[in-house]
């Protein structure tokens, strides 16, 4: 698997997109910090950006990279290489490349601005952590969609639909159901529904960490109320971990059963 990982990182290292992605974060984090002048505010603004953008970019990169490397995969499956190493190696290669671009693009402006003395280090770290989680989750789902769909157009459409659902439609349905069921005690339902959306989970995680109740929203408030901050954080992290594990495990299972 290490060899596959090496080749996939090598391949991505030559791609311009990885650098554009890195440059984008560099620019946006730098602008928000040096023009805004407040680390906490910058973190909150960046959170709103990454919660939408990281899933979108990871989904698109994931599905495009998967379809582009089909030839590579077909060459590899006939070689004495374990099947699951091929898929996991490629998946890790892309997720790591994206996470590292994100980490560096954010980290460099924050370090230059003086993150060390701002007292916001842990908050910054939680931003990076959720960003990386989202990268790993949405890349895995995109790979899984690619593996299940030979048809590129269909796979691409499904992947975008998945992002759209999690980023936009889910919240709409969520609010709608809350309105309709207003008369009932639905806190537990609301909690349960949050777990099924990694973007919501990430938002709640950062909110709990930053402890800004005004921005926490309905579910965030319930979360804090129900679990308290510490347990809430643990539960969101566990749920996010599960969101990585399940699609990756699916990748392994489907990869082993696929015909080439």
């Amino acid at each position: 698997m290490i060899k596959i990982l090496k080749y996939s990182i090598y391949d991505l290292g030559r791609s311009h997109w990885t650098f554009i992605y890195f440059g984008f974060y560099l620019l946006i984090a730098g602008t928000l910090l040096f023009l805004g002048g407040d680390v906490l505010k910058a973190i909150i603004s960046l959170m709103n950006i990454i919660l939408i953008l990281i899933p979108l970019i990871s989904t698109i990169f994931g599905i495009m990279y998967f379809y582009n490397s089909r030839d590579f995969i077909e060459l590899l499956v006939a070689q004495p290489v374990k099947r699951s190493s091929i898929f996991l190696g490629q998946y890790l290669g892309l997720s790591l490349a994206l996470s590292v671009s994100f980490l560096l693009g954010m980290g460099i402006p924050f370090l230059f601005y003086g993150l060390k003395d701002s007292g916001q280090f842990m908050n910054f770290l939680s931003l990076i952590l959720t960003g990386s989680f989202l990268t790993f989750i949405f890349t895995a789902v995109a790979f899984l969609i690619g593996l299940f769909n030979e048809n590129k157009i269909k796979g691409f459409g499904l992947a975008i639909l998945f992002w759209l659902f999690m980023a936009v439609i889910y919240d709409g349905l969520f609010l709608l159901s809350l309105l309709m069921l207003e008369a009932y005690p639905i806190e537990k339902l609301a909690l349960g529904m949050t777990v099924f959306n990694p973007i919501d989970l990430s938002r709640i995680f950062i909110m709990l960490k930053l402890d800004i109740s005004a921005l926490m929203g309905y579910t965030g408030a319930i979360f804090q109320d129900f679990f308290g901050t510490a347990t809430g954080l643990t539960i969101t992290i566990l749920a996010l971990g599960l969101w990585v594990f399940i699609p990756v495990y699916g990748l392994k299972l489907k990869g082993n059963a696929k015909d080439f």
């Binding site: 391949d11 030559r14 030839d71 590579f72 060459l75 006939a78 070689q79 004495p80 290489v81 374990k82």
Partner: peptide, 22 residues
Amino acid sequence: KNNWTYREEISYLPQIARFPEN
């Protein structure tokens, strides 16, 4: 079945050569 080490003993010339293009 569920084995990959045996492929060390096989050289395979596929029908359609598909390579990583770049």
